[in-house]
């Protein structure tokens, strides 16, 4: 087994989420839906408890009435270095690539859903039905992204198609990849810049700086998953930094 330190790669992609900036507007959810050809979460699907949202805004209420506050935490695949979903897949449909990402190979997946049980963040989604789109939406499907058939798992890919495209373009043009060249759909859509995407191997990138912030925390530390998505805690106006809901 190759450990994270031994992997030779120039990039280690990651995301930083400033929970303090998140307004819960759900723009990222919609952007992701459009970018990644995510099946429609209709009312019917909602009632079946099988909605898809590669990124979702979890909303928690804090305090006693009337001083109630809503807090929002965007949760997407945490791209754990030590992912519980990876070793359990019998067919290597999910594995860790050399750029710090947890990737899903749709063609290999047979749909045992074991990874879904293994994921503590519940960010893996199973295609219970063959996804369909109304004719009016057919033309908006992104040609860069595979449409997943029924019976397989899918999850946030850090918009890998964008990473690949920008990498190709920079190689073609013979220039260095700069921080900010690659934007995922959600970071691009976020009106408050709560979501930031970048390369941890680049010390000057925004995510690297945010990762060294005092407010930084990761979810479910005790499980030792070592996520590549870090969170910056909410700053409570009444004093003290309140983390997520943990």
């Amino acid at each position: 087994m190759v450990t994270a330190a031994e992997r030779v790669s120039s990039h280690k992609w990651g995301m930083a989420v400033d929970v303090d900036r998140c307004t819960g507007c759900q723009a990222c959810v919609m952007a992701c839906q459009a970018e990644n050809n995510i099946p429609l979460s209709t009312e019917d699907i909602y009632r079946q408890k099988r909605t898809f949202a590669w990124i979702r805004i979890e909303r928690y209420w804090y305090g006693e009435f009337p001083n109630v506050k809503a807090r929002f935490i965007p949760i997407m695949c945490q791209h754990c270095e030590n992912a519980p979903c990876e070793p359990v897949c019998p067919v290597f449909a999910t594995y860790h690539n050399t750029e710090g990402m947890n990737v899903q190979v749709y063609n290999r997946c047979v749909g045992t859903r074991y990874c879904g049980n293994g994921c503590p963040y519940n960010v893996r989604f199973f295609n219970y039905w063959e996804p369909t789109w109304p004719t009016s939406l057919r033309n908006q499907l992104n040609p860069d992204v595979t449409i997943r058939s029924r019976g397989i798992m899918e999850k946030c890919s850090f918009c890998v198609q964008r990473i690949r495209r920008v990498s190709r373009e920079t190689t073609r043009d013979g220039r260095e990849l700069q921080d900010g060249d690659i934007e995922t759909a959600c970071t691009e859509a976020c009106p408050t810049n709560a979501l930031v995407f970048g390369d941890y191997n680049d010390d000057k990138s925004r995510v690297s700086i945010m990762r060294n912030d005092d407010r930084k925390y990761t979810h479910l530390d005790a499980l030792n998953t070592d996520p590549n998505v870090v969170y910056l805690a909410q700053v409570d106006a009444t004093g003290g930094a309140a983390g997520g809901h943990e």
């Binding site: 030590n82 519980p84 070793p87 530390d221 005790a222 499980l223 030792n224």
Partner: peptide, 9 residues
């Protein structure tokens, strides 16, 4: 060994 959580290790 398989669990790998902090208390497990």
């Amino acid at each position: 060994w398989y669990g790998r959580s902090e208390s497990d290790t």
